[in-house]
Simulated assay, not measured.
Amino acid sequence: MATNITWHPSLSRSERQTNRKQRGFTLWFTGLSASGKSTIATALEQHLLHLGLAAYRLDGDNVRFGLNKDLGFSEADRNENIRRIGEVAKLFADSATIAITSFISPYRKDRQVARDLHAAKNAANPEDEPLPFIEVFVDIPLEVAEQRDPKGLYKKAREGKIPEFTGISAPYEAPESPEIHIRSDLKSVEESVVAIVDYLNSKGLLKLNSSDGRGLEY
């Protein structure tokens, strides 16, 4: 670990938010494979972009094939995968972008590390407020996920062809108190997006007050 590094003075978080006219925060989607995380996250990203908000989705396609292509699926590699994603999501959120992550992220302690990163003080600007971190639990019974199985992964896992597969041969630790809990077998994608946007509006995260007190609403 490098010890000869120091923070360089930079723009404050509030400066970025004021100039970009939006708040940065992270929506952390977690759930079993085939729960519908990525489908809902993609629809949400599209909706936010249509509202004129900067949003970006991180998922296995753009992370596992690039930044984290050196990692496998052992517990240690899964931990490191989520740690890196947490750091990248924090950078997006700090830039006044809405970061949307869609990963199984099966371990509570790893999700807590990502949450704690967002709550940590900014060494360059200690007066910055913590970055909001919203855990979205996309919940589905295992048997329904197996029935969906769009990539045939559960079938392979049951046959022993995929070791350490979450929900079959590796654990999934469900969130105990997520900010948003969606039963994706009971809600449509559209209903799920509405539920998430309603929550964000209830917390005032989709509007930013300008310096003269007028609300900039989206």
Rank of each mutant, 00 (worst) to 15 (best):
E179Y: 12
L205Q: 07
L206P: 11
V194Q: 15
D198H: 11
S192N: 01
H181E: 10
N201F: 09
K187G: 04
I180L: 06
S188G: 15
H181S: 03
Y199W: 13
L186N: 05
K203T: 04
S177F: 11
Y199H: 13
H181D: 08
E176I: 10
I182V: 13
I182L: 15
E176G: 10
S184K: 00
K187H: 03
D198A: 05
V197F: 04
V193M: 10
V194M: 15
E191T: 08
N201Q: 14
S177E: 14
R183I: 02
K187Y: 00
A195L: 02
R183M: 06
R183E: 11
V193Y: 08
Y199R: 06
K203L: 06
L186R: 01
P178K: 06
E191Q: 10
V189Y: 00
L186S: 13
S192L: 11
V197E: 00
E179W: 11
V193S: 11
E191S: 12
P178R: 07
V189S: 02
D185W: 01
V197M: 02
E190I: 10
S202A: 06
L205N: 07
S177Y: 06
E179M: 15
I182M: 14
L205G: 04
L200H: 09
K207G: 13
I182T: 12
S188F: 00
E176C: 10
E190H: 09
E191F: 00
I180V: 07
V193C: 10
Y199G: 06
S184V: 02
D185C: 00
N201I: 07
H181R: 13
I196G: 07
L206G: 10
A195F: 07
V189M: 01
E179D: 14
I196W: 09
R183P: 05
H181Q: 07
P178Q: 08
S177G: 10
Y199A: 07
R183W: 08
D185E: 00
V189H: 01
R183N: 08
G204K: 03
E191V: 07
V197W: 05
S184A: 04
D185S: 02
K207H: 15
S192K: 14
V189R: 02
L206N: 11
L205T: 09
K187L: 05
P178M: 07
L186F: 07
S192E: 00
G204F: 02
S188D: 14
L186H: 04
N201V: 08
I196S: 03
I182R: 10
L206E: 14
D185M: 01
L206T: 08
H181I: 05
R183A: 11
V193F: 06
K187P: 03
N201E: 15
L200E: 02
I182D: 13
S202E: 03
N201M: 09
N201H: 10
N201S: 08
Y199S: 03
L206Y: 05
V194E: 12
S188M: 05
D198W: 13
Y199N: 03
S202I: 01
